[in-house]
Design a protein around this nucleic acid. Sequence first.
RNA 1: GCGCCCGUGGCGGAAUCGGUAGACGCAGCGGACUUAAAAUCCGCCGCCUUCGGCAUCCCGGUUCGACUCCGGGCGGGCGCACCA
Length: 866
Amino acid sequence: MNAPAPAPLYDPSAIELAAQAYWAEHDAFRVTEDPAREKFYCLSMFPYPSGRLHMGHVRNYTIGDVMSRYQRMKGKNVMQPMGFDAFGLPAENAAIKSNVAPAAWTYDNMAYMRKQLDALGLGFDWSRSFATCDPAYYRWEQWLFVQLFKKGLVYRKNSVVNWDPVDHTVLANEQVIDGRGWRSGAIVEQREIPQWFLRITDYADELVDCLDHLPGWPDAVKAQQANWIGRSKGLEIDFALEDGSGALTVYTTRPDTLFGVTFVSVAAQHPLALAAAARDPKVAAFIDETRKTGTAEATLATQEKKGVPLGVSVIHPLTGEAVPVWAANFVLMGYGTGCVMAVPAHDERDWEFANAYGLPKKVVIAPAPNAVPDITDGAHTDYGVLVHSDRFDGLDFEAAFVAIKQALEAQHQGRERINYRLRDWGVSRQRYWGCPIPIIYCDACGDVPVPEANLPVVLPEDLKPDGAASPLTRTPSFYEVACPSCGKAARRETDTFDTFFESSWYFARFACPGNDTAMLDERARHWLPVDQYIGGIEHAVLHLLYARFFHKLMRDVGLPVAGDEPFTRLLCQGMVIAGTYYREAADGKKTWVNPADVEVLTDERGAPVSAVLKADGQPVVIGGREKMSKSKNNGVDPETMVSRYGADAVRLFMMFTAPPEQSLEWNDAGIEGAARFLKRLWTFTTALAEVPALNLAALDSTQKALRRKVHETLAKLDDDYGRRQTYNTAVAACMELLNALMKASDGADGQTAAVLREGAEALVLGLSPIVPHISHALWHHLGHAGAVLDAPWPKADPAALVSDTVSLVVQVNGKLRGQIDVAKDASQDAILAAALADPNVQKFLSGEIRKKIVVPGRLVNLVVAT
RNA sequence: GCGCCCGUGGCGGAAUCGGUAGACGCAGCGGACUUAAAAUCCGCCGCCUUCGGCAUCCCGGUUCGACUCCGGGCGGGCGCACCA
């Protein structure tokens, strides 16, 4: 090998700036539709512009960037866009706290975060970017809302909000702390006001059924969504009121237990309970009590079962018996019909309730025809066969469901019904910094949608929220309008959309930048669905369900979206966690200290024994590993890490330390290890000089083995990047290969040097999606003119993978006793002969060999009598 | 309570279809270089030990063979939370 020219030292910041400048200069990530190439749409959940990126963002976007760069090298036409989810409460809070306009605050934050994203080397097509607070964006969701209005998919009804009586404002749930307003400290009231709803329940069946056709989604997310939608099949059954004044309709999924009904329970807010309250002060008192506890949801589930008899009875539809009606605190007014038939023998809640009030229990389900279930300690809720149920005795659940349904239908007292836990989506928010709802209220014409020609309804950006009611409600120039229909004075809606509205369709708009005449165009059909979506598991239900819903809505109003589902493959990355450290004051108050300020002391094995604060050398308590957060003071700032170690090291550490969907523990020593590896890669690759051409015929067995390692690594990389999406094992394989190459590089010349060079190229190409900057520089070092991001993905040479001999393990009774090398096409007999000849194996072959198992390419297991 | 997921060295993790448990990295220990330190390089590194034995939360099962499959426990995490 020629004496290498003195190589420049690895200088991450210089290399990274140069690579980023190259990408910017060449507009390297801008894409357009290309019918000749397969498209790949890779999307990471866009951020709220809070001001600074946190490690969770870095992890999310690194994963997306790695996938994008890999697919690009595989020849796909990759679109990876990025934008900002720019409406929301923090901007209003900042406005109140620092007296800055929400718009200015938001745009400043976006500019800063854009710089941070670029410094990480993320390959976004910024020409497609937008902020959702731009009227050019939100006008189209107003337009969609108007279309849905016309189709009857939106409606207005009264709904409860958290009302702060001091600030005269509606509070979001997270602004209510222990039942009090976050700023005023006033006790929050529940108030009913009219709000807009989207009929997501019309799509409940499709939303749950389509889950079965999403093989690329994690099961956990699909399970959560199905759970959330909560579809159940049951019967509505009418119980006639004894006084002949009508009927009480209950919903049940267990009509097989109908003969076990001993009373009927209604919600405290049920009309029948309210009517009884007028006559009976005890009922009135009960209703009052439930209203007070009604707010604290967490206690609701565990609270004691309470109720009060209403003094009315209903007639059992099949037995004709009279059963009493009770009001009960555990019956939900908002689900089903607000009343349920009570079967204490076979329902836990009814069992508890009946026990508390001494109501009878009738067993009507048994595990077997002659068995008697034990209900002394609780209800028997399993399915079984019917007993004490007249002509239905002996039937199982399914048969009883059908038979009882038919019996009730015949007397017009029952019908099958599907129920959902899912409620319609309330989209009204009494907030300033959001998209205005495009409706005008006219005394003469009612609720009138803003005509399409008048869209967008622009949010005035010069208003300043002060924590009280939305400034829109105090801005006549905004809300005083003429009715679009009759021209008379009317009032504009001052509520804005839930911010989930914006994030429910942004994925589609990325395909259609610049279109100011339509929400979407044919380009959406080209790019959709998103091939790979990446984001946090915290969005498993709401965001992902709403986005699926919007995709179907856009489809049904005739917009050019492709397919029924927006996201083909979904990856939910794990949290970024870090150790926590604290000191506890005498009063039990904990002061959390940042991990960066702590020194951990270990025993001689390396196990941590104690920790001290660097500043004063005094001990701190070692807490658990938890999600990075302000409250636990265990956050690590990405920008600091990038300036200290370089973006490549940060990216490498994040991809190497854990598989993407698992939680990732940040530790400073770990990222130093990542930086060390990059330094080694740099030193090794830059030291390679001109080498002779690779001559496969001239390779000796050592050189062949080294070359096999190179190509085995390539084969593994493709599998890890593509099918498995386990970047941690891909990096490990590269580290292993670099170790092997460096071991072989001492005084290497001739064909060994040629193999080393081939290995270096494999490493640079194979690592380039993860560490794009150093790869960009090293690719040029290796003499290539083009950019590594445009190089084709390396393929393993099948010829390099074949070996003349294979190494087999020899077991005796399943225990490892020896190792043999045999020809790769050796016969079973030859393999066995070699195994039996091994001296160590022979030591364990005292008895008769009962069985000989040969697994080709793997092992030999000899079973002897013991 | 119901649903989902997970338990492997001091630590993060690997073992992809039931076939060498602990790859790769961190931490630690020993050494080289150095006046010294940092950086770098080399070696050791599950536990008990002499051959060897024991080890993937515990107990059982299937199998020639189980981290992997099945049953039952224990522990942890996440989601939903009286949805009839």
